[in-house]
Amino acid sequence: MNKKTNIYIAGHKGMVGSAIWRNLVSKGYKNLIGATSKELDLRDQQAVKFFLKDEKPQVIIDAAAKVGGILANNDFPYDFLMENMNIQNNLIDGAHTAGIDKFIFLGSSCIYPKFAPQPLKEEYLLTDSLEPTNEWYAIAKISGVKTCEAIRKQYGRDYVSLMPTNLYGIHDNFDLNTSHVLPAMLRKFHEAKNNNNSPVTLWGSGKPMREFLFVDDLAEAVVFALENKLPEYLYNVGSGVDLTIKELAETIQDVVGHSGELIWDSSKPDGTPRKLMDVSKMHALGWKHKINLEDGIRKTYQWFLNNIDSIKEIKL
C-alpha cells in the first residue's frame, strides 16, 4: 500500500463510504475511485466487470448495501436478500477475476445468532438461528463473509470482513420508514421539540441493550485493515460498550433539548435482547474507537441541523 494505490470505494456516497473517503483523503491518498448508483448499477454483473476493467483498482472496499431498520427488513425480505447478494457477489467475484489481491468487505453485527452469548465473538457465526426481523439482510452478509473466506483459503488473497456494530453519524439516513434506531430517534425528538415539545412515542419496552459506533471510528478501522495484512478473515468492529434503548433515548433527548413526555409502545417489537460486540481481536492488533457516544450524537445532530434542507427524503 502507498498513497498512490488505486482504491475503489463501492458506496462512496453513503454514510460509511463517505466517511472512509474522507479518512483516506485526510491521510494523503490520491487515487480514490467512486461511482454513484446512476453511474454504476452494482447489481449488474457485466457492468461491474467492465467498470473494474476500465478503472483498474488495486484495492476494493465494499461499503455498498441495501440497508434499513426492522420495518424495512420485515416488509421487503426478498429485496434485502437478493439485492445485497447481487451487489457483493459482483464485487467480490469481479475483484477476484480481475486479480485484485486486497478486498475489504463490510457487514453487520446482525450476522450473529439472536441468542448468542454476550459479548459476541467472531466464532459464534453460524452457531444458532438469527433474529427473524432482519435475517434476510443477515443471510446476505453471512454469504459475503464466507465468500471472502473461501477466496482467502483457496487463493491466498487478502480478503477480510469487518463486522461493525450499530453505526451512526454524518450522512446518516433520517427517513422514519427506513432508518435505524438512533437517527430515527434523533429526528423524532427534533420534530417534537419544534412542535412545542410534544410527546415522543418509541417502539418497544426500552429494555434491549445496544452498542453504537460513530461512523468515523469505523472508517479508521477500515483504513487500519487497508494498511495492514490482518491474520484472520473476520473481525468485529465496535466500541465494546452498550446501553439500554431507554438510556439511548434519554441521551438523544438531552442532546436535542426536547423536554416533552417519552412514551414506550410495548405492542411493537424489541428485536434482539442484546447485541454487544467482542472487539478484543481488533484491540489486540492496535485499533480502538476514539469517539464516545454523547460526543458522537452531538456531532451527528449538528450535521443534521446544518443539512436539513438537503437531507434526502426529509420534509421538516
Rank of each mutant, 00 (worst) to 15 (best):
K229M: 14
A95F: 04
P132R: 02
P269V: 05
S239V: 07
E227K: 04
T147D: 12
F50Y: 12
I291Q: 03
K299Y: 11
C110S: 15
S259F: 12
I139G: 09
P117G: 09
I70Q: 03
Q45R: 12
V255K: 00
Y8M: 09
L243W: 06
N177L: 13
T5F: 07
K30Q: 15
Y78M: 11
L230Y: 05
S143L: 13
S267I: 10
I61A: 03
E247D: 15
L42N: 03
L42D: 03
G271K: 01
L125N: 05
I100S: 02
T244D: 12
L218I: 01
L213H: 01
G257L: 08
T244P: 15
K141L: 08
F214K: 00
I111E: 04
I33W: 04
H12P: 10
L248I: 06
I111V: 15
C110G: 07
G257Y: 09
Q88E: 12
K121A: 15
M209G: 11
A138W: 00
Y301R: 08
L293D: 00
Y8R: 05
M1V: 15
I151P: 02
L293K: 01
K102P: 05
N194E: 14
I245S: 07
C148A: 13
D62R: 02
D79T: 13
G11P: 09
T251C: 13
K3I: 14
K299E: 09
W303S: 07
M209R: 14
S129H: 12
A225H: 01
E232F: 11
G156N: 07
I311F: 01
V181I: 15
H190E: 10
L226A: 03
F105V: 04
I87M: 06
D62G: 13
H96W: 11
N177D: 11
G271V: 02
G69A: 08
L305N: 14
N2A: 08
A221D: 00
F51Q: 01
L125V: 13
W203Y: 14
F105M: 08
P119Q: 06
N89I: 09
W21V: 01
F103Y: 13
I92N: 02
L305D: 10
Y159W: 06
N236V: 11
I92A: 10
N74F: 07
D101H: 14
L81E: 08
S37V: 10
S129W: 10
H12G: 12
K229V: 15
E211N: 05
L42P: 06
N195H: 12
F103A: 03
V67L: 06
P199D: 11
Y301H: 09
K207Y: 09
V279T: 09
L81R: 06
I9A: 02
L71A: 13
N134W: 09
L40T: 03
A63N: 03
R157F: 14
R157N: 14
D175P: 00
L24A: 01
K281S: 14
N228H: 14
V25N: 10
Q58F: 07
T272V: 13
G28W: 05
Y168Q: 02
R210P: 04
